[in-house]
Design a protein around this nucleic acid. Sequence first.
DNA 1: AAATTCAATTGATCCAGATCAACTATTTGG
DNA 2: CCAAATAGTTGATCTGGATCAATTGAATTT
Lengths: 194, 194
Amino acid sequence: MYDIIFKHLEEKVRLTQEEKEVIKTFFKPKKLKKKQFVVVEGHVCTYLTFVSKGLLKSYHSDDKGNEHINQFSPEGWWTSDMSSFFSGGISFYSIDAMEDSEVLLITREDFENLTIEVPVMDRYFRLLFQNSLITKERRLISSHTHTAEEKYRHLVENNPDLMKRIPQNLLASYLGLSPETLSRLKKNVIIGPK
Amino acid sequence: MYDIIFKHLEEKVRLTQEEKEVIKTFFKPKKLKKKQFVVVEGHVCTYLTFVSKGLLKSYHSDDKGNEHINQFSPEGWWTSDMSSFFSGGISFYSIDAMEDSEVLLITREDFENLTIEVPVMDRYFRLLFQNSLITKERRLISSHTHTAEEKYRHLVENNPDLMKRIPQNLLASYLGLSPETLSRLKKNVIIGPK
DNA sequence: AAATTCAATTGATCCAGATCAACTATTTGG
DNA sequence: CCAAATAGTTGATCTGGATCAATTGAATTT
């Protein structure tokens, strides 16, 4: 269960055996059934979540009840409503499991203690957030510059594996398109081998 | 010149006098005239830039030559093409000064050394990136959920000060709107006192 | 302060993608 | 294994915001 998190941590930072032991003590493993929630919009997001198996999604429901997907989180990814988790305010997103999943949970307090006891975790999260930030920036510019078709093409070309696990209506939501539009434009997009 | 950066660092982390001295040695101060570039799209972004005075913008030009503003950076903010800066690839954005400005520059190599010599800087940047990430996420969801008018209203309500320094066509670009659309919708938006 | 360049407004037209609606798969749970 | 729910397709229509074009207004430069 912890193998996967250490593998991911060690892609960014070096850890001693003692550090690993400390890290272990801070995370609580949990199994999630498909459709089970980690946090519901409007509540406080108590945990930062590492996905060791399965697939979660985080999304926001607007006034009209339409859902807008913020992020998909497969194995090896982190998820949370960061704003709520770090500031204690209410959550803007709901997060739930799209498949039966296994996660590692850490509370805000334990997160603070972790970064104090194992300072290299600050570096790890600095690098993690740094990379996410680059991705989010690009996605935002892409939402202004690219057509619906271009956005879809980029997505499938860059995540062919993940796409197979995600129903089309949720992809549409992630891209900010209506399901009908995505259905229609697919016909023009032939994804060939690279 | 360094007062402003220390003020900002110390909003997030505690620094000893010795650490401050070390930090100082890594940053190179520079004055920028209005319209002067920090980096031009397609080149490598050599510096991470702290703005101690003035206002910069980072933007991307698409195939059709349209400019899309990624970020405005007034005093106390950082700017860079993070992807280029950290990975050494070519820059996706251009960054230039919208007003005569003063900045502090640090190279990639010095940034690495800084985080090693003053490890608390990892924490500082972890916190910085964490907050940016929250903002970017919201902006992205907003670009899917809100109308042009709502996006504009949010922007002016949350940054009334900054708005006064930014010409309307650049605001339009930042919001992903045409200048004409922004001009028109302004008539419906009465920004009252809170 | 006149000249040039750049920013903002206003009008007319157009279009990508949304919405509404009906129908057809495909899942999922009992 | 069947019923009910959910996901995907296709067609017809609508619309927010883009684009094109002309005009006015404000800054910079000389």
